[in-house]
Design a binder for these strands. Structure first.
Lengths: 247, 247
DNA sequence: TTTCCTGTGTTCGGTAACGTACAGACGTCA
DNA sequence: TGACGTCTGTACGTTACCGAACACAGGAAA
């Protein structure tokens, strides 16, 4: 089935006032993002801001030893490339596609232009950036204090919030690299969740059966981040106007 | 001896162009910050932006269990209260004075006003915010992959960079709460460093004897953050000079 | 069907950090 | 000077996670 693509599937774009959205919409380019694709390397110059619609991108940090960990994820609620408007142009982390799908991208120059108008777009992007900081902060604390199983639950829930279906397409190996733990640790934790009837998985597919169960076993970090996102990024008015136009 | 205080001891304020600094300087209020003082609680409305000169403030996250961890530190290179201009007004973390000293504070309204001019102050504050994100990111990865001793070295070095002397006034208990580990873990790691002749400590005082040794034993995170800070926050005027030279 | 690769399950010993408990040592203050 | 409170040292057993190794199974492709 062919689902029609629209930039408004990205909540950040959808939250822009009509005038701002109209200025940008002509230059938004739909791109498919393949699993594992690298949007930018540490220190590399970003050429586009990327607004995911159905894809999920992981902001990932790789240590000299090769060990790594996700510091935040970006789905249809956000944008990849905040360094473009924050002024640093690049970051020490990389951006990797964690769930294949689509995104709209906007040339760097146009994003900066819009940002420099110092209007609603600037304020929206900055609020999103603060939400992203919250997510990173929570990741830091979670890495320190919570168990692998708790973190797996949190991560599944956050991923679930970013996709339409209840099935994630990914191997335990991939999840392990996101959380920065061993693959065996995920096998064990996922096994527990499966035996408890919360999820079911087979070779690269994870189906969530009882979401509430995951919420129970998750650490508080999931809720904390979710609440802060909704506090910072609820912009009912802008969204409704845009949806009216789209309809 | 009475050391004269000046807002220019804060590098962020010092990096402002003269016109911008002149507008603000009359409203900057010198305040002493006592060890353990809480500048803001999670969710609390910030009333001031705080620019440390000799004090160091820790951005701290406390979990429901009472466990906690520092997610970033702010010294004379930065400002406490980025949520004021990012638009969220508050954050889920708290700000605690980690090293007593002084700071200049600016009423919230005036900071916003200056920020909304969309001039050099905005760009400077956003670059600083990106640097702070880098620090938080690195903390997240460090918490996942590095040993307590490595983290202690990193933390001592970062703190050292923010104070004039080579002696830190703080108990092992306090350091432990910053790193989110047990006090005994710090006792052991600090004992190793002392036996190796890198530091010397006694009841709430830590003297750094051989800084290079700490750098050797630290994880890469110290360097990574330091480099990113200097990349992002090289003085505006200095930059222009460099560009002129380069051109 | 068979093959083969990739993904998953399980085991083992090793270790870093935890939780708890208590002893000693320093310094301040009476 | 002596007493007391705070800070530091040390010693358990316990646990979660690591690192490596290997067996097995699912599923796509030949």
């Amino acid at each position: 089935m062919a689902i029609p693509h629209s930039p408004l599937q990205n909540k950040l774009l959808a939250a822009l006032p009509p005038a701002e959205f109209a200025r940008l919409s002509g230059d938004l380019e739909l791109v498919p993002l393949a699993l594992g694709e690298v949007l930018y390397e540490p220190g590399g110059q970003l050429q586009h801001a990327v607004f995911p619609t159905t894809a999920i991108v992981s902001l990932h940090y790789v240590l000299e030893s090769g060990a790594s960990a996700e510091v935040a994820g970006v789905g249809n609620e956000g944008v990849v490339g905040i360094a473009l408007f924050m002024g640093g142009d690049t970051t020490p982390s990389s951006a990797v596609v964690q769930t294949a799908g689509h995104a709209y991208r906007l040339p760097r120059r146009l994003l900066k232009q819009e940002f420099d108008r110092a209007g609603p777009t600037l304020h929206l992007l900055l609020r999103y950036t603060q939400a992203l900081i919250t997510q990173t902060t929570q990741t830091a604390v979670c890495n320190r204090h919570h168990s692998v199983e708790q973190q797996l639950c949190r991560w599944l829930l956050m991923t679930l919030d970013r996709i339409p279906s209840g099935e994630l397409v990914m191997t335990q190996e991939l999840v392990a690299s996101m959380l920065g733990v061993r693959r065996e640790g995920i096998t064990e934790a996922a096994g527990n969740l499966q035996r408890a009837g919360l999820i079911r998985y087979r070779r690269g597919h994870i189906a969530v059966l009882r979401r509430a169960g995951l919420e129970t076993r998750s650490c508080e970090c999931y809720d904390a981040v979710k609440k802060e996102f909704s506090r910072l990024l609820t912009d009912v008015r802008g969204r409704q106007e845009n949806l009216a136009i789209a309809g």
